[in-house]
């Protein structure tokens, strides 16, 4: 069946993507790889649920199989949820189809066979608009479209996996961090912080203004001082607090991308030329070790 095909390893995101397709009154076919997923997906308003049955626990191993399936089905568009697994699978499918792909589209419209998409470039500094005719693969992050409801039947199709990559072991990552996306206020530390113990000055300020603690990518991924869920930016959490206060954060575009929707941005950094000041409402140039405790005091009053 022609129309739009959808896949996400996150069921909630698959539902949002069906919502997108239905906004445009297209037909939506959702792909999945287990019976349990198929059962969940029958109520999200798709026209059909396609249960692709094979023998691999890794969905990435179905890249070529999906490419062949989409070609046979005469698909117009393949929309994939932008998760680590989704992005990988989507690019493999695009590779096997040798077709166009738009990664992490920030806006999307499909009209008479022509896809118009926008996406961020240079860490968010630039928006690029693209037009594609013909079959295309797109990845879309969560939170952009509203899910709908409606029931669909399941069609089971046998597919062959590429089993050259074998899964030996899987272990859940225990989430230690807080969900910054819900936070009203956020205090953010960057690599300007010298020692892990010094997180205390940030925690004290956070306690004074009832804020959650966030950080830049390096603080979490390289120094491991805070859980990875707590780093903010284009590859981390995208937040919209009332108040965001940064200290020792240079404000590179990839980080600032994650705080664009904050109501008020405050920057404390010793380098007056740091780009964070161009993205801030209020700033103080100076040593955070001096300024932050004073600010905590001033707020406590």
């Amino acid at each position: 069946m022609a129309g739009v095909y959808i896949y996400s390893d996150r069921m909630d995101l698959a539902a949002e993507l069906v919502g997108f397709v239905k906004e445009n009154q297209n037909s939506a076919q959702v792909l999945c790889f287990t019976q349990a997923e198929a059962d969940q997906l029958t109520s999200i308003g798709a026209d059909k649920v396609c249960y692709l049955q094979g023998d691999s626990p890794l969905v990435e191993n179905y890249g070529q199989a999906i490419a062949e399936y989409l070609k046979q089905a005469n698909a117009e568009l393949f929309v994939v949820g932008a998760t680590a697994r989704g992005r990988d699978l989507a690019a493999r499918v695009a590779g096997y189809l040798d077709c166009a792909m738009v990664s992490d589209a920030s806006s999307l419209s499909l009209e008479s066979g022509k896809l118009r998409a926008e996406r961020m470039m240079y860490g968010g500094a630039v928006v690029q608009s693209e037009e594609i005719t013909g079959l295309c693969v797109v990845t879309v992050a969560a939170g952009k479209y509203q899910p709908v409801t409606g029931s669909a039947s399941v069609e089971t199709v046998q597919v062959t996996a590429d089993n050259r990559v074998k899964l030996l072991e899987t272990a859940p990552i225990v989430k230690e961090g807080v969900d910054l996306r819900q936070a009203c206020n956020v205090v953010c530390v960057g690599l300007g912080l010298e020692k892990e113990e010094d997180l205390k000055i940030a925690r004290d300020l956070a306690a004074a203004i009832d804020a959650e603690l966030g950080c830049t990518r390096g603080v979490a991924e390289e120094r491991h001082w805070l859980p990875v869920e707590q780093y903010i930016g284009i590859s981390g959490a995208i937040i919209k607090p009332q108040l965001y206060i940064s200290m020792g954060v240079s404000g590179q575009v990839q980080h600032v991308f994650g705080v664009r929707d904050a109501k008020v941005i405050v920057a404390i950094d010793s380098n007056e030329k740091a780009p964070i000041f161009r993205s801030a409402d209020f700033g103080i140039v100076g040593d955070m070790y001096e300024i932050v405790p004073l600010l905590t005091q001033a707020i406590k009053g």
Partner: peptide
């Protein structure tokens, strides 16, 4: 290219940019 680029635009964020000095 299969992706036709139709526009490239900068993103600007309007902030107060007040420095207390």
């Amino acid at each position: 290219p299969k992706n036709q680029v139709t526009a490239v635009k900068g993103y600007v964020m309007n902030r107060k940019n007040i420095i207390f000095n």
